[in-house]
Nucleic acid binder design. Structure first.
Lengths: 245, 245
DNA sequence: ACGTTGAGCTTTACGCTGTAAGGTGTCAAG
DNA sequence: CTTGACACCTTACAGCGTAAAGCTCAACGT
């Protein structure tokens, strides 16, 4: 089973090497630039060779997602009741850093369901911290969804902004107002939505969430969360279970 | 310039008709199922005919995004200082409803920068409401980013969940715990992350944000937002302006 | 020492994609 | 009737994901 033969010539293919080169290719040429043939060429191999390591391209993308998740350094989990907030803040920051480093690949993170182990391990660490802080399972799940949703959305917006900035490469950047006389409100907000203000906007949103979470009553029951405002008054959306059997 | 000729035979192509049929096709067969040829066939036309109405497929997708945005009913904008909260809640709910109705297309909304007029008009309405409520431009921009990020992320997660549920079509659904003995935390959260709990999780996150926003000091200056916790203590990420010109 | 095996990669091929280039038909204006 | 523009069609090309079969060669049982 050992290769031992032409290591000198070619370092042999592994899932890890493939996923890593795939990520590099995405970073360089965008998601649409990743094709089995081009990836194979970079690895010194024909396209079909990849299919001995992944059943389909989708599985390869899952591996790239896992590689991205693995890039997040996990700080040592606090077990006391108060460490959860800085912990969440740091993990959220690292997650966002992925969008900065890999704007072309970030949509994979935001758009695909966690499938692989590394992703579950990531989720597990978060769950442990929240449960350890005294939140109920229900609260922890909702907190994860809320923070996760925000971080995904903000990362996606950041990635899109970076991508667009790279495309228009120094061309007509911004032109904040004056270009849209009919949208004065947008013009007023524009400077604070520009690329330089993204950091602060992210911190703002995250602080909002964390402050709200800190104010939650801890309880393993977590019977029902009824916030300041009344429940939505319009007709509730159906829970969207599949219609037919 | 008027068609007036073979309306009986074929209703003529317009950008609107094309975008609408494209959305229907995406809803039915997924984003990857949208091809110029298949779309053309549905419209009773050859693929290349589309290129007389859109310069490229990307422009068509932008039109689909615009169509989606236009689907959001905009409630009459409040001009007083308190109406912003229910207004935001309703708009957020409608936005999320898009993810429910068009799970396959939602990634377009979350992943592409707003380009077209309708999208700007949407942004403008939000800006007007927030500015009218007494928030500074900076605050309004951050609020929009925070709520927008959350709503995009949550919608994406919802869409992914719906998509996955449709794929595994009644097959091994959920299997909440027992399948992963090494991830007890995840197993504990799983029931509250399942498809039936998504509504409540969304409301929870949104309430968190809205409550936090309501607590903001109104001010046109909005000099600096320094929340309960100290600023991020780790080294700040670079603002990510493009590196070299 | 020798045939067998099977992993790892290549070859070939198919149906699909987006779209560039140029052709065709129809209709309104002159 | 001629003209020209517009809307659509035809053809073609390079590239895509991947099914199926072939090649090469180290490792193994006998």
């Amino acid at each position: 089973m050992e290769p031992t033969s032409d290591d000198a010539r070619r370092p042999r293919l592994t899932r890890e090497r493939i996923a890593e080169e795939a990520l590099r290719l995405i970073d360089q040429d965008g998601l649409e630039g990743l094709s089995t043939r081009r990836l194979g060429a970079r690895l010194g191999v024909e396209a079909m060779a990849l299919y001995h390591h992944f059943p389909a391209k989708g599985a390869l993308l899952d591996a790239v997602v896992e590689r991205l998740i693995a890039e997040i350094p996990m700080p040592n989990c606090p077990r006391d009741g108060e460490g959860w907030s800085p912990w969440l803040r740091q993990v959220a920051g690292e997650y966002r850093a992925l969008a900065l480093r890999h704007p072309e690949a970030f949509v994979l993170l935001a758009g695909r369901r966690f499938n692989a182990r590394a992703s579950f391990a990531f989720l597990e660490a978060n769950a442990q911290v929240l449960l350890g802080a005294g939140f109920s399972a229900r609260q922890a799940a909702w907190i994860f969804r809320a923070v996760g949703g925000f971080v995904n959305g903000a990362g996606l917006a950041l990635a899109a902004t970076l991508r667009q900035a790279r495309e228009t490469e120094g061309a007509l950047i911004a032109d904040p107002a004056a270009r849209m006389p009919e949208f004065p409100g947008v013009a007023a907000l524009a400077p604070h939505l520009a690329i330089g203000a993204l950091d602060e906007a992210f911190d703002f949103g995250l602080d909002l969430l964390l402050a709200g979470i800190a104010r939650l009553p801890r309880g393993h029951g977590g019977r029902r969360h009824v916030p300041p405002g009344r429940r939505r008054r319009e007709t509730r959306k159906a829970p969207a279970l599949r219609p037919g059997p």
